[in-house]
Design a protein around this nucleic acid. Structure first.
Lengths: 333, 333
DNA sequence: TGTCGATCAGAGATCGTTCTCTAGCCCGGA
DNA sequence: TCCGGGCTAGAGAACGATCTCTGATCGACA
């Protein structure tokens, strides 16, 4: 049996298509008896407006794309993405909008730009760690608004939508916390230098240390993953065996770093204090539990959703909000 | 400037709407010069077919919902969901279909059934661990096909689409592996008893042990999470302090269990061997690395996508495939 | 009581694509 | 040379909701 249409509802209610539409759209200037008849008919038939027809007529699709690199999704890094994803999807849902998942790293590189042009979505939220160069250009030319979660390195229009956390401030927090704990021989395991947030954390870390009178501290780079954290820690330890504090700029790298420290006979935190960044769920399940700089990941996703919805509705909003980071004190520092 | 339409393409190419449509649909019986003109015009305008209009006319939306419980998504359990999600999304993409993410645990409980009736999607893939009762009924009444990843406990129609892994066989594998390793005092940390896969794993475990001459072995239940695994292991250890082998029916529970064992002074695997289930990414990053029964999670997602696409196209396929599980030998057993 | 204004229901057009049906053309056979 | 068959291009309808415009009805006021 075919899906009921507005015509069916109108016929059963004994009114015209237009009247039925008015009632279901919530217009008040309709005769009460007719309205009741329409409501009843709609309920009886289990009527739900055909989204394609509405979309064709109205121009809006009621869907927003969530662009994610799938190969980053199922590793442990996933806890980062899924938190943002969850926040974004929840935010979109509150706005009666459907989240459509788009893999940024699919072989068919032309698909995302084509999809953006097909009118199937009203906007997109981009959640990427590493840059995807070919995509950046396509997104810049997008006919629909794009919200970036985390500032990308590509040049953006001044009115671009960018939701970021205070990476710079987070770097300062980490530095201050280690110094407050009496540590002076400090090192940082930074993220990839092609990522803006990673650079901001380094800047914050260095500025705060300089202010506290510590002029130089060693830096090594990782890829935000656990194994890269281990490797980076090993390098750091080899060059500076007398370290007493480490700032790993992701929780996963902190986890890898702690293992290497423990394997090298250092106790955490008594010999070496370690601070992470992100506050994803493994921070609470490690041993020792991880002191870390918290990014409000789910909030970032939610704010991205709210901001893009506001822009689509023509409301005036802050297009580049920066969400506060905070220190979460646990055992490792 | 408004999005270019088929009429624009036809006008520029100097042909009729119908001819332009034919060319873009890949029909061959069109004059070569006209075809070339259409191709050129479409490219020049950056034309992409309006998906709403196509959908309205064709009846198909080209989208499939991925139904996931969001509160299960960002915990460590996430690695399970995201793997399946990734496979499913990839599979759908190969079929030129868009994956739409639907949170099963959204407050507005009526939204999913309404969405299914709106024609916005052609089908749905359900990836849930725990049952969501009110949803089960709605899904059973769905006007579009549903593919279940993991068999749910609700009664399904005989032609329902269910993609599962061989949980029973996996339970047997775990039992055999521990016995082969010379262990005889065995216990199982099972999943919640309201979940069919958890029950299947127990059955397989028991059947294999019985066949190998071990008649009774203790059983405790967890919730597939790390902390519940720790708690379950603590209970098990208290009742059976002389255990020498444990089968934890998820990797997360295995991780929690190993910590409790180590804290209690047991060496893994020399004192107590531990086998997990799933083979998610933490299995390789634990210490010791985890011997586990692998479920092909990404494949399950992919097969779910392929199967539902086949059903939608009216092709004849196995609607209830069972994917093989396998033992992945690492350090813990 | 008649006329004007306000209000609300309905008819029709519209969104952009796809598909069917018709008309016209070309070629071949008689 | 004429007629018929086959094949391709174009005209038109259809999908279903929404919005504008028109027409009708009712009430109020003169």
């Amino acid at each position: 049996m075919p899906r009921p249409t507005l015509v069916d509802v109108a016929r059963i209610a004994g009114v015209s298509r237009a009247t039925a539409a008015r009632v279901l759209a919530g217009e008040t200037k309709v005769d009460a008896r007719m309205a009741a008849a329409v409501e009843r008919a709609a309920k009886e038939l289990g009527y739900e407006a055909n989204s394609a027809a509405r979309m064709l007529r109205g121009g809006r699709s009621g869907a927003i794309a969530l662009i994610v690199a799938f190969n980053e999704l199922d590793s442990l890094t996933g806890t980062f993405f899924t938190s943002v994803l969850k926040g974004a999807a929840k935010g979109l849902y509150t706005g009666e909008v459907q989240p459509v998942l788009l893999p940024a790293d699919h072989e068919d590189g032309d698909r995302i730009p084509r999809f953006l042009r097909s009118g199937a979505i009203d906007g997109a939220i981009v959640i990427l760690q590493h840059e995807i160069t070919h995509l950046a250009q396509a997104l810049a030319d997008s006919p629909v608004p794009i919200a970036w979660v985390g500032r990308p390195r590509v040049a953006l229009a001044p009115d671009a939508i960018v939701i970021d956390s205070d990476n710079y401030g987070g770097g300062r927090l980490a530095a201050r916390a280690l110094v407050d704990a009496g540590r002076r021989r400090l090192g940082i395991i930074a993220g990839p230098s092609d990522m803006e947030p990673a650079r901001d954390r380094i800047r914050g870390w260095r500025d705060e240390l300089a202010q506290l009178g510590i002029e130089d501290s060693p830096i090594v780079h990782g890829e935000f993953t656990l194994v890269s954290g281990s490797a980076a820690m090993a390098r750091l330890l080899k060059r500076y065996p007398d370290l007493d504090g480490v700032f790993a700029s992701s929780d996963l790298m902190a986890s890898g770093a702690i293992r290497v420290l423990q394997a090298a006979g250092r106790r955490v935190p008594s010999d070496v204090a370690v601070i992470g960044f992100d506050d994803v769920s493994i921070a609470t399940t490690m041993d020792p539990t991880l002191t870390t700089v918290r990014q409000p990941l789910e909030d970032m996703g939610r704010v991205a959703a709210e901001t893009i919805l506001a822009v689509l509705q023509g409301r005036d909003v802050d297009r580049q909000p920066i969400l506060a980071t905070s220190l979460v004190q646990r055992e490792s520092a």
